[in-house]
């Protein structure tokens, strides 16, 4: 008797729910919130993700207002987490500009000053160590990178019978890393720089495997940077402090270069081996290098068309 009553009651409720015109939108909203709560609560990562962060649009679809709100949010999160005031900007690519980098292999002495200037400028993790530039010590007479040694530790450089080849992201015109990304978290900007949206990256590391220049690095843990060494002038697509589990790489310091400054690695180079500029400008230094010097393209046979070129005197 009681069971019968219960059954009829529940069937009545079910019937009423089904017959009630529940708007699809409301239903999806509820589903989304439910999913978000289910995703966030058990992992206790609610502080790492905000709601707006989790449901934000792809970088390319953001309106200027949404972008500003996003940058403000990142600034506030950095303040909360590291206790310092930073300025996160997103300088757009300049019109009529395509960046090219040239490096003089005859001049480089392998002092690694560029490596550490880059680490400092781009807020790379000190422990575990992440460095964008690998300086290969190579025997003279060979350009085979497999004969290079990046762990050299001599009393003085340059060593006799050795030359030094710094390798960093080549900002390819046909970037294999962009091709393999399953979520479009990395793409090529109009000025030629391949960028990563750290908020969109899922950390699958396909790009790391695809890159022929070993230019991409993975944040296995939250980056550890001494607070006093954090560079407060940050760019959304370049040197803002990365979260755990995302890829990062050299961006030609786009937060600097898109404002007309030179990259940090160039400014620190004591030998003047590094040349940077706009390839579309006939008076630029990279144009002069390409016109007057012998150019070497690393792994040219892969047809990646790098924007990072080596040259000799």
């Amino acid at each position: 008797m009681v069971d019968e009553k219960k059954e009829s009651r529940s069937s009545y409720l079910l019937e009423r729910t089904l017959n009630k015109a529940l708007p699809r939108r409301t239903f999806l909203k509820g589903l989304a919130v439910g999913t978000a709560v289910a995703t966030l609560t058990p992992a206790k990562t609610a502080e790492a993700f905000s709601f707006s962060d989790f449901f934000k649009k792809h970088y390319k679809e953001l309106s200027p207002q949404e972008k500003t709100a996003m940058l403000t949010r990142i600034e506030a999160e950095t303040k909360k987490r590291y206790g310092i005031d930073v300025k996160v900007e997103d300088p757009p690519p300049m019109d009529g500009v395509e960046f090219v980098y040239c490096l003089n292999l005859s001049k480089c002495i392998g002092c690694r000053k560029c490596v550490y200037a880059c680490v400092k400028e781009n807020n790379q993790s000190r422990d575990p160590q992440i460095q964008y530039i690998k300086v290969l010590e190579m025997p003279k007479g060979s350009l085979d990178v497999h004969e290079g040694n990046m762990y050299y530790d001599h009393e003085d450089v340059p060593q006799k019978d050795k030359f030094y080849m710094p390798v960093q992201c080549h900002q390819c015109k046909h970037p294999p890393c962009v091709k393999v990304c399953p979520v479009e978290a990395t793409w090529k900007e109009p000025d030629g720089i391949v960028v990563i949206d750290y908020d969109w990256c899922i950390g699958c590391r396909y790009c790391e495997a695809a890159c022929p220049y070993e230019a991409r690095r993975f944040n296995f843990t939250d980056p550890k940077i001494p607070t006093e060494e954090i560079n407060p002038n940050q760019g959304y697509l370049s040197n803002r402090i990365r979260p755990r589990g995302v890829m990062e790489k050299c961006t030609f310091c786009l937060h600097r270069t898109r404002k007309g400054l030179y990259p940090a690695c160039l400014e620190v180079c004591p030998t003047g081996s590094r040349k940077f500029g706009n390839i579309l400008d006939p008076n630029s230094e990279v144009r002069a290098v390409i016109q007057h010097k012998r150019i070497f393209v690393l792994k040219e046979e892969l047809n990646t068309m790098p924007r990072f070129l080596y040259f000799f005197d």
């Binding site: 002495i109 392998g110 002092c111 550490y116 460095q131 050299y152 530790d153 001599h154 003085d156």
Partner: peptide
Amino acid sequence: FKHQKPLPPPQ
């Protein structure tokens, strides 16, 4: 150019 001590190698 004088020879100089390079900065430490990567881990």
